[in-house]
Amino acid sequence: MTGRPVELAVEALRYEAEGRTLLHGIGLAARPGETVGVVGPNGSGKTTLLRCVHGALRPAAGRVLFDGVDASALGVRGRARRVAVVPQDAAGTFGLTVREVVSMGRSPHKRFWEQDGPDDRLRVTQALETVGARGLAGRRFDGLSGGERQRALVARALVQEPGLLALDEPTNHLDIRYQLEVLGLVRRLPVTSLIVLHDLNLAAAFCDRLYVLAGGRVVAQGPPAEVLTEELIAEVYGVRAHVAVHPATLAPSIVYLPEHPAV
C-alpha cells in the first residue's frame, strides 16, 4: 500500500516571505522507516519547514532530497508519489463521503480525466482497513469526529503509496484517546514519517529523533532523551520544567512547573 520508505535529507534550507527570513539554513535528515518529530514554540518555523519538504512552498535556497534525488526536479506528480501530506484538517471535502475523500489520494497515479478502476477501489478499501475506518466509508467526511477525520486523512495519504508521510500537528484538537491512536497508527506504518508536534510528551513517546526549532533555526537534534532537557525547555520555551524517565514507556516525561508555586 505504501511505497518503499524514503530517505529524507534537507540541506541548508532557507525560506523568505515579505522580506523576512523564516528559515535560516535548516538541515534535517530522516532515515528510511524513521519517525522524526519537529518541535518548537509558535512561530519557530515548524509548519514552514514541513511545507517546504512536501512542496507547498518553494525555498529561497537549499535542497530537499528524496533518496538522494532533488525534489525540485521531480515535478508535482513525481513528488506526490514520494511524499503524502496529512494536514490538521482537509479543505474541499464538504459533502463528500469518506471513500470519496480517501480516493483523492489516487490522483498522482492517474491521468486527470481517468476514473477509479478496480485496483484503485481495492487500494482505498485496504487503506481504510489499515487505519481501522472501513466502517466509515459511506459516511460524510464533514460529519466525522476529529479522530475519525484524521484516520481518513491518513488513509488518503496511504493510497498515494508514498515513502514519506508529512504530518502537520495531526493531534491538534483531538481528545487524548485519539491522539494516542493516531500517533500509534502512524508509528506502525511502513513509511518514513516527519511530524510537526507541539506536545513534547507525545513527541518523546512516539518519535525516534527530534529536531527543535527556534527562530527558524535548528537549536537541538537527537533522540528525545538527549534533546528534551530542563535546560533546553527553559531556553527555547521560556518555562520551567521537570524531566524524568516515564516508568512505563521509558521515554522522557515532562511536567511544567508554575512560576509561583503554591505554598
Rank of each mutant, 00 (worst) to 15 (best):
L232Q: 01
H54N: 08
P32H: 07
V131F: 10
L183W: 02
G19W: 05
P32R: 09
D199A: 05
G37R: 12
A29L: 14
G27Y: 02
I195R: 09
I26D: 03
F141Y: 13
E230Q: 14
G40Y: 05
L165M: 02
A84Q: 07
R187Y: 06
R14T: 14
A80S: 12
Q150N: 05
R187E: 06
Q221W: 13
D142C: 08
Y237W: 08
P5R: 11
W113F: 15
R121D: 11
V245R: 08
I176C: 00
A244M: 11
L167M: 09
A73M: 09
A262L: 14
R140A: 11
P258G: 08
V83C: 10
V263D: 08
N201W: 09
M1Q: 10
E259Q: 06
V218T: 05
T125N: 15
A262T: 13
R51F: 15
I254W: 05
L228M: 03
I26H: 04
Q126L: 15
N172F: 13
L153N: 01
R134D: 11
R123N: 12
V219N: 00
R79T: 07
D208W: 03
V53D: 00
G33D: 07
V218H: 07
V10L: 05
N172E: 08
A61H: 12
V124Y: 14
L144K: 14
P108T: 09
V86F: 12
V191H: 00
E169C: 07
V36I: 09
L22H: 01
F66Q: 08
S107F: 13
E235I: 03
E259L: 06
W113G: 06
H260A: 13
